[in-house]
């Protein structure tokens, strides 16, 4: 196992669900479970856990107190369930949960205000004690776990993926919010790259705008569409220049921005170059032999992943995809 300076769990894990994974890219959840099962990671998915509020939080709808109270509620379930190792699939869940735990530990007045609200409304069981959750060690992202166990990944190799040109895009809310907890750098983030390396599929060392964001900007994608897409174009053009086959992400919000908008961006820039957009867990699952439709869920991607499978010589039955509107 890799030597890291923060605790990375392989058991007692609550695999924390993401609203965008659930509704947009459910294959990310299926792939993560597939890979975790192979690697012998022990986890539960708990339907008592609410969403982290992340999107609403950064739409500015949720105030810090409400977000933190919901986190305290979630934490209490995980602790009672003896699975307090939070492993989210989304960068924003990761950052929100860490921030909430920090506030609950450090700001005594806020913790007390929340506990008081719980007490006065018959929700005593949700009360949070200082230190219940360690923001550094008890909240890690799926990529942290994959990185920690990366040397085991080749043991489950079923497919060769070494002929791909890969670019990685690391979630800002994984890298930059709690940068002291980020593994493998945040100014030039490389944690996904390191996971690719063990699959003998090295990613581009650098491309212009590599550490920059996807452009979604929470509200911007909806309320300020032009600004959002202008920002995405920066990275999009740089990826075109590098002629990448696949862009790997670790957060469904980034995945949505690059995958759902690829056609829109091509129309905007007049720049055409196919690349697939995948979560790193999906690629690892593919490498381990997972079914493209039944595990990776590529039918939920706007950009077809099939050309990538063709390049890799992986067989598939395209009739399993009933969502895409076929031209023929």
């Amino acid at each position: 196992m890799v030597d890291v300076d923060k605790f990375i769990p392989t058991e007692n894990i609550t695999l924390f669900r993401s609203c965008l994974v659930s509704a947009e890219y459910p294959g990310v959840e299926a792939s993560t479970k597939f890979v975790f099962d192979k690697l012998g990671v022990e986890y539960v998915i708990d339907r008592n856990q609410s969403c982290c509020t992340g999107l609403g939080h950064y739409y500015d709808i949720f105030d810090e107190l409400s977000t933190t109270a919901l986190a305290a509620r979630n934490f209490s379930y995980a602790i009672r369930n003896n699975h307090k190792q939070y492993v989210p699939m989304c960068a924003t869940c990761y950052a929100i949960l860490k921030t909430s735990a920090k506030i609950l530990n450090e700001k005594d007045d806020v913790r007390e205000e929340i506990n008081k609200a719980f007490r006065e409304n018959g929700l005593e069981e949700f009360q949070y004690n200082k230190g219940d959750i360690d923001p550094r060690d008890d909240i890690t992202h799926v990529v942290d776990v994959l990185y920690y166990l990366k040397d085991k990944i080749p043991e489950f190799k079923k497919r060769d993926i070494s002929n791909l040109t890969i670019a990685t895009h690391h979630g800002c809310h994984y890298c930059k919010v709690h940068y002291n907890d980020t593994l493998c750098g945040y100014r030039n983030p490389e944690i996904i790259d390191k996971i690719c390396e063990v699959m003998e599929a090295p990613a581009l060392q650098w491309y212009d705008h590599k550490p920059r964001h996807c452009g979604s900007g929470f509200r911007q994608r909806y309320a300020n569409r032009e600004l959002s897409l202008d920002a995405t174009v920066d990275k999009f053009e740089s990826l075109h220049k590098e002629k990448v086959d696949v862009l790997l992400v670790m957060c469904p919000n980034c995945q949505l921005q690059f995958d759902r908008y690829e056609q829109v961006l091509e129309d905007m820039t007049g720049d055409k170059h196919y690349f697939a957009v995948m979560n790193i867990a999906q690629l690892v699952a593919l490498y381990m032999g997972a079914d493209p439709y039944k595990v990776l869920g590529i039918q939920t991607h706007t950009v077809n992943v099939e050309p990538l499978l063709d390049k890799l010589g992986i067989e598939y039955d395209s009739t399993e995809d009933t969502l895409h509107v076929r031209n023929e």
Binding site: G185, R187, N188, Q205, W206, P211
Partner: peptide, 10 residues
């Protein structure tokens, strides 16, 4: 190299 945005490594 600790400030990769300045491109010295690349």
């Amino acid at each position: 190299n600790k400030r990769p945005e300045y491109g010295h490594p690349f």
